[in-house]
Design a protein around this nucleic acid. Structure first.
Lengths: 212, 212
DNA sequence: GCGTAGAACAAACAAATGTTCGAAAATATT
DNA sequence: AATATTTTCGAACATTTGTTTGTTCTACGC
């Protein structure tokens, strides 16, 4: 069926490339022209869809007021620094702000130093793991998980998320859509199902650090 | 005269902050409002000045079509080292020298950067984990274990050791004396018993790092 | 004092942009 | 084949935005 990438995906990739190239987002008409749609109205539908799923954010009635939430995806940046390893200081958060959107770096309790090529680009934060809900993935209590701050993720990825405005937890994202499913990695715990609006993703886990 | 920063500089800093916060550049009027100018015309002159000097690029007649050429400059992000955390570069070893005594740092494949307070003092090295003999301790294949180079350890500690001059492995030291016992953390593997002379301890595992 | 230069202003204009609405076309479903 | 669903379109509209123009005000040098 879908031999070619869907318009939705085409658009998203174009957004990433454009932002990368020009430093600011494209307009609706520029998108239309690029992906082969004749009317700005056609683009609107997809933008709404992308916004509903958290890939982008928009400010209504404002030109180019479009923010990418996952700057990495569409951009094939050169990750080959393989020579010098920049060390990055990652703030350890006591708790994650349960606000609607951004991850606020509250209660910084210290820093974790890692090399850039281990975690990739972006803003990162670290959390100390509480509980044993992820033991089957080798994530133990008192480990540190390092996450890249982003508000969307894909099925199968390990994410830091807040449910019902609760404290942040580590879970495996297993289903998306109107209803979101979050899986623990421990048979003794139950999967969590919740409405799309009740779950906020704070970041995607990219590394784990344990100190013996 | 210039007690306060010049309007030009105010504007440039605002551009950086805005772009950082919203993901797209502000409009001329948003700039005016922010830096305390009442007319968009007033902002224009400064933008022209900034463009003339190469700080920004603009596309005429297009809203928000403004590119920062130096995204880092104006942004006073949290670069504070917040306390002190000395970062240590730990060599990643392809294999551990099977010599009787010291750990020679052969075949360095790269470095792992960690903060000193995570690993403590001493000389360290890192190994990539092969096999699943330690899964029950949450040490998975392709993880990195960081070890402090030392030739002795105590019962119960996780060590890097070589047996019969074999490749280095990660095990739990469980008995000392004439006969040494090394335990895997996996029911499918057998404990290893060997003579005191046949086992050489290279280091004690002090940290674990996993990259997703 | 006089004149000049620069900064800022307000108002108006033209262009670009986001949005909406109904209809047409394409696609999927029964 | 008939129907429902999705996608796209075209055109009009309201808003936002960049730009221009002429004016006012202040500071400075002669």
């Amino acid at each position: 069926m879908n031999l070619k990438p869907s318009k939705r995906q085409q658009i998203f990739e174009f957004l990433c490339n454009f932002q990368n190239q020009y430093g600011y987002p494209p307009t609706v008409r520029e998108i239309a022209s690029e992906v082969g749609l004749a009317s700005p109205a056609s683009v609107q539908v997809h933008l709404r869809s992308l916004e509903r799923d958290g890939f982008i954010e928009r400010d209504p009635n404002k030109p180019r007021a479009l923010k990418l939430n996952q700057p990495d995806k569409g951009s094939q940046l050169s990750e080959s620094t393989h020579g010098e390893s920049e060390s990055v200081s990652i703030p350890i958060l006591g708790r994650v702000a349960a606000g609607t959107g951004v991850v606020a770096f509250e209660d910084r309790e210290g820093d974790l130093v890692l090399s850039r090529d281990m975690i990739g680009s972006g803003d990162h934060f670290a959390l100390k793991v509480r509980g044993d809900s992820m033991v089957e993935m080798g994530i133990f209590e008192n480990d540190w998980v390092v996450a890249r701050a982003q508000k969307v993720a894909e099925v199968g990825e390990v994410v830091i998320c807040g449910i019902f405005g609760d404290e942040a937890t580590v879970k495996i994202l297993s289903k998306l859509g109107e209803e979101v499913e979050l899986l623990p990695a421990n048979k003794n715990y139950q999967p969590i199902r919740a409405n799309h609006e009740e779950v906020s993703i704070f970041g995607k886990v990219v590394a784990l650090v344990r100190s013996f």
